[in-house]
């Protein structure tokens, strides 16, 4: 195993810090974590970059004179009491760096959504659903629509025309598609889908197309169950640009 020298430690820290800085500055970080992580990611990147620059500074300033004082740290890491190269594991940090700079994986979508049943969060017991704001059609977040439909029998949706935004995910049953969004609690490893079934005159669309669906609540999708998929009677379906924030 290759021991990790001071200057390589510095380069690794700068690469990891740089990768974090890059996804925050480019905005790609919202494909992976909640938008509220932004300041913490900036601070982490700054700390890592600073530690990396200082490690390089150590290595460049005193490659040999440092040996005596810093022990084995600067000169010969193979003697530092770790056993041979246990710090070699640090090299693995290049994997996420490469993933960020080369692959830049996009947001999760239809593939992930079709692997799991819909998950409609339940409001607090006895809590009343507030009426929808004015508007015709009124834009309603997909999770709010599903919760109103499933846990409140669509009471607050009666007589309203709504506009729902989501991407196209093939139905697990095999025919047609469902209007879908992924809800993220913390990071993309924990996303759960929220699905709404468009009914009526529904065109075939390729998976992962983002659409705005204008329509009205239609009972029939099942209620009082977290895995129910409520219906929406379609008036109009318009393809749209993906929203700035991919997850709910």
């Amino acid at each position: 195993m290759v021991a990790v020298k001071r200057e390589v430690q510095g380069v690794l820290l700068i690469l990891v810090g740089g990768a974090i800085a890059r996804i925050v500055i480019s905005g790609a970080y919202i494909n992976y974590v909640k938008p509220s992580m932004k300041p913490y990611l900036y601070v982490s990147a700054a700390i890592l970059l600073a530690l990396g620059v200082l490690a390089l500074y150590d290595a460049v300033r005193a490659p040999r004179t440092n040996v005596a004082r810093v022990g084995a740290g600067a000169g010969h890491d193979h003697d530092d009491g770790h056993g041979h190269g246990s710090m070699g594991v640090a090299w693995l940090l290049l994997l996420p760096v490469a993933a960020v700079f080369l692959v830049a994986p996009g947001p999760l979508g239809a593939y992930t959504a079709t692997r799991e049943a819909s998950s409609v969060s339940q409001p607090k017991a006895g809590e009343l659903m507030p009426p929808l704001p004015p508007g015709d059609p009124v834009p309603v977040p997909l999770d709010s629509y599903a919760t109103r439909a499933v846990w409140d029998d669509g009471r607050t949706l009666e007589g309203r025309t709504v506009e729902l935004i989501g991407f196209v995910a093939p139905s697990p049953e095999g025919d047609g598609w469902q209007l879908t969004r992924l809800a993220l609690a913390c990071c993309a490893a924990d996303t759960v889908p929220v699905k709404v079934q468009p009914v009526g005159d529904v065109p075939d669309l390729p998976a992962n197309t983002w659409v705005a669906v204008t329509g009205r609540y239609q009972p029939g999708g099942g209620t009082q169950s977290a895995t129910a998929v409520p219906w929406v009677e379609v008036d109009r379906i318009v393809p749209i640009q993906p929203p700035a924030e991919p997850y709910l």
Binding site: I20, M37, A189
Partner: peptide, 22 residues
């Protein structure tokens, strides 16, 4: 799509954990 999803999940676990690790 499976590899893409795997890569996204991998990066997201690392990105989420890094501030706490720091």
């Amino acid at each position: 799509p499976r590899l893409q999803a795997g890569a996204t999940i991998f990066v997201s676990i690392i990105v989420q954990a890094l501030p706490f690790l720091v």
